[in-house]
Amino acid sequence: MKFHPLPKSHASLITLPNEMVMAQTPTHRAALLKHMESGATSLVLDLTDVRYMDSSGLSVLVSVYKRSRELCGEVVLVSPSDGVRALIELTRLHQIFDIYEDRQAAIRYITARENPDA
């Protein structure tokens, strides 16, 4: 997982790993929540590299969504594969996450939200 803080904001771009599955989800959840506790209240989660995700991977997304809401932030998703998108839609998580195909558009949205007067 790669963390890239976005300039002049409390937001980060995070590239999720190839697999978001049960064996690794406690580690991924802890890393993401720790990053949020350090000040990144809004996240752009880039799913481009995610080949497989199961329900525990989805639960990590939900944990992050709930924490961002508590911190008055927001989480958006970028470029899920067709399979991951189908999984997100099957479990209706597209109702809580905005999904972008273009990473720059997602970053623009999150940073504008963080700096409405900029």
């Binding site: 199961d54 329900s55 525990s56 939900v62 944990s63 099957l90 479990t91 209706r92 809580i96």
Partner: peptide, 19 residues
């Protein structure tokens, strides 16, 4: 029913039976 959007469990069976 589909598990609630904010819930962190219960989606595995939903996926299994639907797919």
């Amino acid at each position: 029913n589909c598990p609630s959007r904010d819930g962190e469990t219960g989606r595995g069976l939903w996926i299994l039976y639907n797919w």
